[in-house]
Nucleic acid binder design. Sequence first.
RNA 1: GCGCUUCUAGCUCAAUCGGCAGAGCAACUGACUCUUAAUCAGUGGGUUCCGGGUUCGAUUCCCGGGGAGCGCACCA
Length: 491
Amino acid sequence: MEDEQDLPEQIAIRMAKRERILASGQDAYPVSLPITRTIDQVKNKYPDLEIDVATGDKVSLAGRVMFQRNTGKLCFATLQAGTGSRIQVMLSLDKVGEEKLEEYKELVDLGDHLFVEGEVITSKRGELSILVDSWSIAAKTIRPLPNLHNELGEEYRVRHRFVDLIVRDRAREVVQIRSKVMQSLRNTFTKDDFIEVETPMLQTIHGGASARPFKTHSNAFDTELFLRIAPELFLKRAVVGGIDRVYEINRNFRNEGADRTHSPEFAMLEAYEAYGDYNTMAELTQTLIQNAAMDVFGTLQVQLEDGEVNDLSGEWARVSMFESLSEAAGVEITPDTDIKVLKALADKEGLEIDHPLHGKYVEELWEHFVKGGLQKPTFVMDFPVDTSPLVRDHRSKPGVVEKWDLYIRGYEQATGYSELVDPVIQRERFVAQVKLSAAGDPEAMKLDEDFLKALEFGMPPTGGMGMGIDRLLMSLTGLGIRETIMFPLVK
RNA sequence: GCGCUUCUAGCUCAAUCGGCAGAGCAACUGACUCUUAAUCAGUGGGUUCCGGGUUCGAUUCCCGGGGAGCGCACCA
């Protein structure tokens, strides 16, 4: 650290206090403290004491000083636990003595962790308090907390999430909600006999999705490696190996733009079920999300940040992509519709699409005409074949594949397939992707020989689904993605 | 990647048609044994994001760079 002269005033003063504590033979950062109670335990034990009561109950506890009200001979402070619950402590001249009271006033700042021993009482105003017999510093804070009476700025919140978590209840709450949602998802899977695995994040060939990857280099293998854009191809290898019900919740990395709904690293859930198909995966997905809402909020009418309600109840609608598009566009559009007709329609609607694939036009037109109107949870079924290289052809409808996307409040929330398991067709699809890649599409998939070899050993009929965890949190809270991720990337 | 907006004290924000940079909270000194955003009196605290230019003088105007926010594009 720089010279004390150069430090901001408040930091220099606190550094000096730290020195004073150490010089007096005390510890500014003791390794352990004889704590007998948490703040929550005390509050739960005495929910409604009368005014001015002395319980005779001696406790010792610690917390962060959030408010201080120092007077001549009786000082008040509010301690906060990690849970956010708070309790008042009182230091009086007759209990702690003149020397320790002075020392308290001189050395203890807002933000410090304070340890106190004393009796549980209520003040003359009726507030549950600890009447302190003795105190010591539990951890000295060098930097001042921000002012608690204004909202923190957006950038400060994200760059100093540790401070945000101290001062803002909602920040702590979101962390807890996220943890509970993860737990609920895992419970649902466990009840359904799925097992959780972890597959490689460093890959020699990236696959399983259409996206630009992050590249890195292995010194040991002297080779280029990619951070995974999806776990899909490894989870399918697991299914080939007989892990019939398998899922993974872990991070994916995509070298794309970041905005309110996209983060370069994001948590992804993928699940595969042998002898399932895209219908059973739709049911599973609905169950996962509804269970999460019930487990975390106790309701399927989820209250969002802006006051709106996200209604997740009932059986979720299923609509066909081509049918819903035809209806909204007012013209019949099928997999056989000439691509020139699609291009003309796109031009007429002011869409700038320049892509060789028929399916790309269908998807873009669908997003233009239909997507925004899908507020209630809706499975959009049966996608174009040429944009879905890992999905099997529809069992009865020609020209489409058995794939759905789940939309909630206009956002893509999850996707599900009847997986393509025919190694010959899968090879053809990869070859088509390689041609796109050669034609300059940076997101086209690469041909993965090892994955094809796995399919050649026989993959059972399988349903698969993938869901963005951060997106799920957004649907359940109405927050932006950077608020659902505790430490989002900032430059 | 492109466009618009923004960056001032520890935090949240004012102000300047280009002329000594302000407030609230926080901090410091003092008073106060029932406060709770304690109160009262007083005090200090700034590379106005960085670099260059114009100017007697730039925090303000211009150019370049950086961070952030919003919109568009791409994507989940």
